[in-house]
């Protein structure tokens, strides 16, 4: 099995797909870093030349005063407490809160690429892993070896998982390094608020807690990886079912874009929550953004994605091992 995976990696690397993905990511990160930099500059100009440290100091005192007022509701109190902690951290570590460090940039970049950019990059790899063997005709050589078909497909799937991990690691590294050059590499231990939710009733902070930013980023990467594996497996299935790589890519692309559009407009069509595309933004549950449809939770989305994932895996292996190869 190791040797089969070695074969698949050899082919993947020889075709330079991963390098293309790396280049695309680098270009995009440079672009976003520049955009972020411009935003920061205009903000600084608006604030005038006043020293941000004094402003921050003043804000902390204000917040603390409000906290000492016993009549404010508990939830709100909790939020204010976090705000004080964050502001104190910025002050202690000499970080201007208007300027993101590399860790915040990386976090934000991952959160924003989870439902479209990352799936696209994964799709570039996954969608021709099997179909290219069909379109090149090499499938006839591959399947006339003394190796069972499921093993061959499994080696391809393991390669896909490796490639996904590599792409996500690459994304993290590239965005950290490039943005760090501009914004500095500090901010790993900044406190982050996790577990609160925005509901119809307002801000629900019960069950919220504070964790350092590095831990938050790690959790982000975890859910990003899971979402990427699900999309990767679905593209993999399409690659098994459809001989033409271009057609396969088109299908996945259409689904992803439909998902992006739907999540902005379907809040009343509740059955749409069973589409995998609407469950992709797992990071939103972590940072407290509202879900596309009322009542969706992290465990709901994880369950929906798991079902799609198992289904895709089952169909891929079922079809591939039985298929007549013409």
């Amino acid at each position: 099995m190791n040797k089969l995976i070695q074969n698949e990696m050899l082919k993947l690397l020889a075709r330079k797909r991963l390098i293309v993905v790396g280049i695309i990511l680098s270009i995009l990160v440079v672009l976003f870093t520049y955009a972020q930099y411009q935003t920061v500059q205009t903000q600084l100009k608006k604030l005038g030349t006043t020293d941000w440290r004094t402003t921050l100091q003043q804000q902390i005192i204000d917040t603390q005063n409000r906290l000492s007022n016993s009549r404010i509701p508990d939830d709100f109190k909790k939020e204010l407490e976090v705000r004080v902690k964050q502001q104190q951290y910025y002050l202690d570590n000499d970080i201007n809160p208007a300027e993101p460090g590399a860790p915040s940039f990386t976090k934000e970049f991952m959160e924003n690429s989870i439902d479209l950019l990352l799936p696209l990059m994964i799709m570039v790899i996954a969608s021709d892993l099997v179909s290219s063997e069909f379109s090149m005709g090499s499938i006839k050589l591959l399947l006339t070896r003394p190796v069972k078909r499921w093993k061959i497909l499994f080696s391809k799937y393991v390669t896909l998982l490796l490639a996904i991990s590599l792409i996500i690691a690459m994304m993290g590294m590239i965005s950290y390094l490039i943005s760090g050059v501009v914004f500095g590499f500090k901010g790993w231990t900044a406190p982050e608020f996790i577990g609160f939710q925005i509901t119809e009733a307002g801000f629900d902070a019960s069950g919220a807690s504070i964790i350092p930013q590095w831990q938050f980023i790690l959790m982000d990467f975890g859910v990003v990886w899971f979402a990427a594996v699900v999309v990767g497996t679905l593209s993999f299935m399409v690659s098994v079912l459809i001989r033409s790589t271009a057609a396969g890519m088109g299908i996945i692309l259409a689904l992803l874009i439909a998902g992006a559009i739907l999540s902005n407009m379907v809040s009343s069509w509740t059955s749409a929550k069973y589409f995998f595309m609407l469950n992709m933004r797992l990071t939103d549950y972590l940072n407290g953004s509202p879900p596309p449809i009322e009542g969706m939770t992290l465990s709901f989305s994880l369950a929906v994605l798991t079902v799609w994932w198992l289904l895709a895996l089952f169909i891929s292996f079922g079809v591939f091992t039985k298929k007549d190869i013409y």
Partner: peptide, 12 residues
């Protein structure tokens, strides 16, 4: 065996 043409990997 060779079935029809031997379609080996052109990029290797």
């Amino acid at each position: 065996c060779i079935v029809e043409n031997p379609e080996l990997y052109p990029f290797l």
